[in-house]
Amino acid sequence: MSDVTEFPIMVKNLTRRFGKSLVVNDLSLSIPFGKMVGFIGLNGAGKTTTIRMMVGLLKPDSGEIAIAGYRVPSQRDSMKSHIGYVPDRPNVYGWMRVQEAIDFARAFYPNWNPDHCERLMKMFDLDRSQRAKNLSKGQGAKLSLLLALSHDPEVLILDEPTSGFDPLVREEFLQGVLAATSERRQTVLFSSHTLADVERLADSVAILHEGRLVLHSPVDSLLDCTKRIRAVLEDVSSARQTPPGMVFQQVSGREWTITVEKFSRDQVEFIRSHNRVLQIEVLDVSLDDVFKDIIRGTRGAA
């Protein structure tokens, strides 16, 4: 398969139910080599379930998964030495000292790279003799990251790695991810609720809503092409004609705000010529705005 190396993370028509509820619904996502993707969605959107299926901890009901070219779950054991996974909670035994945890982990990986491990030790400033349970939250997360990176994996998957961190630790942790991945050109998927982090770090963003992928787009083109158009309505009671490409609209008093994708001047002209509006302006948006409006728009359409 030639497309597996081109897309180290590939998921096709993935579906998973828990009882009656459809948690992941026909999800397809391909992440190109060397790219960092932010995986976002509300709580319960299916992010962690998707990630657990990707790393082989949970069986899908149907669909295909290929990670670093290996089929999951059938080739899970061969796949393991090619990925690094940082789960949403610590995965190191509390009684182990940092050095013991490293020795323990390295036994699982034929491709463990001691030099790289040492470099990460220095970069993250970890104390070998500390017991894992005595590490601060941030230090614990850095240890998880070190264990996930020391075998030089092609793919790195992080499940909400910074939730509950204080700002300083968050910054150090993300710096670690950025330093490690930009040097090695890894393909990275990280789920997060912190959209500011996704906007800073990710090449592209994948939005999951109620188990479905509603958008996968490069961050810069998404922000270049999504705009909010704000118009002042002359007559609030008359029906409004919305332009093509509308994602979400909101009326508050006389102020009418329309979020559009694939922005062009034609949309502004459409609003002007089909509605009685007094003033019209076009505003840039942040990823936070885009995410909220897309989710609200999806809800409105359902």
């Binding site: 910054e171 710096q175 950025l178 800073r200 770090l201 090449d203």
Partner: peptide, 17 residues
Amino acid sequence: VRAQALTLLVNPNTVQR
């Protein structure tokens, strides 16, 4: 680009741009 990306904590492609 790399140093700037690490200091500002942003994607290196963004610094490049």
